[in-house]
Design a binder for these strands. Sequence first.
RNA 1: UUGGAAGUAGCUCAAUUGGCAGAGCACCGGAUUGUGGCUCCGGCGGUUGGCAGUUCAAAUCUGCUCUUCCAACCCA
Length: 423
Amino acid sequence: MLTQAPRGTRDVLPTESYRWQYIEGKMRAAAALAGYREVRTPVFEHTELFARGVGDTTDIVQKEMYTFQDKGNRSITLKPEGTAGAARCFLESNLYADALPCKMYYLNAPIFRYEAPQNGRLREHHQFGLECFGAQEATADAELILLAFRLLSELGIQNLSVNINSIGCPNCRPKYHGMLKDYLAGRVEHLCEDCKNRFERNPLRVLDCKKPGCQAQVKDAPSMLDVLCDDCKAHFEQLQACLDAAGIPYRINSRIVRGLDYYTKTVFELITTTKDGNLTVCGGGRYDHLVEQLGGPDLPAVGFGMGLERVLMLLDAEEIQIPEPAQYEVFVTYMGEHRIQAFNLVESLRNQGIRADMDHCGRSLKAQFKYANKTGALISATIGDEEAENGSVKLKNMATREECTVPVAEAGARILEMRKDGE
RNA sequence: UUGGAAGUAGCUCAAUUGGCAGAGCACCGGAUUGUGGCUCCGGCGGUUGGCAGUUCAAAUCUGCUCUUCCAACCCA
C-alpha cells in the first residue's frame, strides 16, 4: 500500500521520460508555429468555477471531480479539464484588454477525474491544450483542428479520423431541444435509465448514448444540423470550406455532442481506430459564452485538449520508435587509487558541456566498462597507473574500439572533435 | 458505479491431488589482479498483492480487501 501509487495514477520513470519530452517538444513547436504561447495555471481551482463553467448537469461535475474543503473552508477542486482554468486566468489578468485574439497553450497539465481506470483511462492524466480567445471566425476553429491533425500525423499516428459537428448556439439550440424532446417524448419508456434522466436535463446527450436500445430510438431523431440558425449554419459551412481548402479528410458526425456544457457551434474529436477499438485522442470545440458566463465580456473562444498518455499509447501501438538519448557521452573508468583524478576529469568535462560520469559504486575496471557499455556511452576515458603518472588519459571509441592517449588537459577538446565526427 | 478475468523473484512465466516455491532474462561477481558487447561458471534475489479462516500442512480451498486488465458508461 505504502509503495503503491493511488489507483488510476502512473509514474513516468527516468527510463521513459525521454518519450514524454519528445512529444512535448513537438507540441511546443506546433503551438508556437501558430502563435500560441504557454500559460501555466494552478492544479486546483475554486469548485464554483467548474460548476458554473463546465455545467452542473454534466457527468464530470456531478460525479467525477476531486473536491475537498481546504483549511480555510473553501471548496477546492482539482482541475477536471483545462479550459475553465485558462478562461479564469484570461479574465483575472484582463488579457481581453490586449490585442485579440489571445492564444495560449498548456502542456503536461494534470487533469483529475474520478473514473473507473482502464487502459487509456486514468484518474490523473495529462493534457496538451490550446485556447484561442476573441476569435469568432471559423478559420480559428479550422486552425486548431489542422494543428492537432498535423501534429499527430507528424508524430506518425495513422488512421486518424477527424469528426466535426455543430451543436448550435443559444438562438437555435432551444428550438432543437424542443424538437428533440417532442421526438423523444413518446419513446422515453424505451430509453435506458440514464437517458430517462438525460431526457429531462440535457436531451442532447441521449444522442450520445451507446446502448443499442437507445441508439435504435434515436436513429430517426431530427438533426441539429437541420435546425441551425443562419449564423451557426454559415459558421459551420465556413469551417468545412477551410478544412476542404486544407485538403484534410474529415467527416460530419452528428453524434459528437461532448460532455461539457459550455460548447457552442463547432465541436470536434480526433479519433483513432486501433485493434482494441476507437480511441479519442483529442477533443474540443467552440465556447462563445463561457467567458461572459464567468463574469467577463461577451467574447467568443475556441480550443481543444489532447491526452498525452493517449498519444504515447498510440505511438506504442504503432511501434513508432522515439530516439533515446544516451545517458552519457563519456564514461570515465579508473583504477581505485586514482579516484580523485577521475573525479576531476569528470567535472572538467562537464564544465565543457560534455555529459560525463564515473563509477560511484566501487566497481572493478572491467565492471566499469560493462556499465559504460550499458549506459550507451560513446567514449570511455581511462585513468590507470601510467596515465595518472604522466597526466594523460586513454580515450576509446566504444563502437569502433579505437584508442588514443592524450594529455588530460586536451581530453575535452579531443572528445568534442570525436563527437563532431560522430555526427 | 455495474459485470467478467487475473495477481508467484526487478521482468516473462512454471509448480501434479493441498505436501520442501522453481526456470529463463535482468542484476552482481568470476574465468586475464589495465578494458565492454559473445560464451562458460557462480552469487544475490520471495510476507506467492494484503488480512483473516479451514487444515497436521495453503501459491493451491473459503471470505473480505487492494491493484491491474477486459466489457459497459464516459471521455483525453
